[in-house]
Computed example of a mutant assay.
Amino acid sequence: MENWLKVCSLEEIPRLGTRQLKHGEKNIALFRTDDDQVFALLDRCPHKSGPLSQGIVCGRHVTCPLHNWNIALEDGKAMAPDVGETSPYPVKIESGSVFIRL
């Protein structure tokens, strides 16, 4: 059974910005692109565990604020030449509300 959690409205995430969600022991970062796509990743860079929610969104990736690693928003994988990944979460938008599947 799918477990979708309503987390906020689309408007609560700034364009090219982020919002952090705490779920149990995990911090999840929500990212909104300039074309209103929303992605969710575990808020931890695979390099040194930097907070991706404090990074800069550009296109379909986020730049970690600690060491400038670029992480793809769609799958959480570091972009070459870096190697590593963080966990992505499925996201859907319905009637202006953002849901993630945990």
Rank of each mutant, 00 (worst) to 15 (best):
I93A: 11
N68R: 11
D36V: 01
E74T: 15
E74H: 07
V98L: 02
K22E: 13
S9E: 14
P51V: 12
C45G: 05
P51A: 14
D35V: 11
V62T: 09
V98R: 09
M1G: 09
L52D: 06
T33R: 08
E2D: 12
C45Y: 03
I28N: 08
L16R: 15
L5S: 08
E2A: 15
V57M: 02
G84W: 03
G24E: 06
Q20D: 11
I13L: 04
H47L: 07
K92L: 02
G55F: 04
D34Y: 13
Y89C: 03
L42C: 08
S9G: 10
K6V: 01
I93M: 09
C58P: 08
V83P: 03
I100W: 05
Q37L: 12
F39E: 06
G84L: 04
L30I: 04
S87V: 13
P90H: 01
I13G: 09
P51G: 10
V62I: 06
D75F: 00
S97D: 12
C64W: 08
G55H: 09
V83W: 11
V57T: 00
W4S: 13
L21Y: 01
S49L: 12
E74S: 03
C64E: 00
A40G: 00
E94H: 12
Q37F: 07
V83A: 10
H67Q: 03
W4Q: 11
G17E: 06
D34W: 09
A29N: 13
H47M: 04
K6L: 14
L52A: 01
G76H: 04
I56T: 15
I56L: 14
H61I: 11
P65A: 07
I93K: 10
E94Q: 11
E74V: 06
Q37E: 07
Q20G: 15
V62W: 05
G50L: 03
E85S: 00
V57P: 06
S97Q: 15
S87I: 13
D82P: 04
P14G: 03
R60K: 13
K77W: 04
R44I: 10
C58L: 13
V91M: 06
K6W: 11
R32Q: 05
V91R: 07
S9A: 10
G24V: 00
Q37C: 08
S87R: 11
D36I: 02
H61M: 10
C64P: 12
F39A: 08
C45V: 07
L10M: 04
P46E: 09
W4G: 14
E94C: 05
D35Q: 13
P65H: 04
A72H: 14
D43C: 07
K48T: 14
